[in-house]
């Protein structure tokens, strides 16, 4: 008798548990991600930029015959957009990186583009991977997503064909993790959150790769789940497997962790006042919304205090004050 009651109960409990794992957690994580990110960006936006403080990385616009650096030191809004585009799309500042090494009691500055390359490779391949995932969320699959998949698997290695972005993202993440452990300076500054974020990303990428090339997953089931989530008619399909579950939970953890961690740099990079402002401080007045009057030592007070000395030195006094 007990078994008769327990089995359906357990079964339904398992069903509910699966529902929570496959539906509840992703929803919650995505809601936290979006809500949290908006909350952070709005938080930044609420604090004004009282002063125009771009870091100028090139010649200013001054005399017409002096060649200025319109992207590294833009003097127009359009130039600032260009600078930001270089910054966001190509990591311009990181590209400048060099490495100071002591050699015979002097510093030499060697080129050091690995960090730039690693960071760029990681971010771009991550973007490609995210966009490729649209094939699971949208029906019919948009043409650009299919095209992207084709290009990404251009070399047709194996079946299913190997995505280059998968290789790149794993290599880049491994590099970023190893340099944190290897470089003693970096190990000194690295915190739990640095490793945590990297390991989450690495875990997500590895489980993803594993599903594609190793343990396999029923893509149709996954897509049904994804579409269900996206269109608010969640279904809990059978046979998605444990690896997929881990993958999904890691993505959810990453999404929920995102707004509360350093990962918010994704939004923050656009708001950096040392990068997104034109260096036209002397051409155009910039207004500080909280500018308030301060105590100064006025000319009248000063003249009063130094009247004797001014007279002695025959420096003209302010006539208006004299009368």
């Amino acid at each position: 008798m007990a078994a008769l009651v327990a089995v359906p109960l357990l079964a339904s409990a398992a069903g509910v548990g699966k529902g929570i794992l496959l539906v509840g957690i992703p929803y919650a994580a995505f809601a936290i991600f979006l809500g949290g990110l908006c909350w952070r960006v709005v938080g930044w936006a609420r604090s004004p930029v009282p002063f125009r403080i771009p870091t100028t990385c090139g010649q200013q616009t001054s005399l017409p015959w002096i060649k200025s650096a319109p992207l590294d030191n833009p003097s127009t809004g359009l130039g600032a957009v260009g600078r930001m585009a270089l910054e966001v799309l190509l990591f311009r500042s990181l590209f400048r990186n060099n490495r100071a090494e002591i050699y015979d009691q002097r510093y030499v500055f060697g080129d050091s583009k690995w960090l730039w390359l690693g960071a760029l490779a990681f971010h771009w391949s991550l973007l490609v991977i995210l966009l490729r995932h649209l094939r699971l969320f949208v029906q019919p699959v948009p043409a650009f997503v299919l095209f992207m998949g084709k290009v990404d698997s251009f070399f047709q290695i194996g079946a299913p064909a190997l995505y280059l972005s998968n290789v790149v993202v794993l290599c880049a993440l491994a590099y970023l993790l190893l340099r944190r452990l290897w470089d003693l300076r970096l190990r000194y500054i690295s915190q739990f959150s640095d490793y945590f974020a990297l390991l989450l990303l690495l875990g997500t990428a590895l489980t993803g790769v594993l599903m594609r090339y190793g343990t396999r997953v029923d893509v149709v089931a996954v897509k049904r789940l994804a579409i269900g989530l996206a269109t608010f008619q969640p279904v809990v399909p059978d046979g998605v497997g444990i690896v997929f579950l881990i993958h999904l939970l890691m993505v959810s953890a990453l999404a929920a962790y995102f707004p509360f961690s350093k990962l918010v740099h994704m939004g923050g990079v656009f708001l950096s006042p040392t990068r997104n402002l034109a260096n036209n401080s002397r051409m155009k007045r910039h207004v500080n919304p909280w500018n308030y009057p301060v105590k100064t030592h006025t000319y009248a007070e000063w003249e009063e205090e130094f009247r004797d000395k001014l007279l002695m030195a025959e420096i003209p006094l302010d006539e208006a004050k004299h009368d």
Binding site: P50, K262, H265, P273
Partner: peptide, 29 residues
């Protein structure tokens, strides 16, 4: 100051400790 300076607030939040700045400071060098 977090309310007055976006620079301060943002710079408190977005550092990823990539280490690019480490050997750029003359005092550190």
């Amino acid at each position: 100051r977090l309310e007055r300076f976006r620079s301060f607030k943002l710079f408190m939040d977005v550092c990823v400790r990539c280490g690019a700045c480490a050997d750029k400071c003359h005092y550190y060098l």
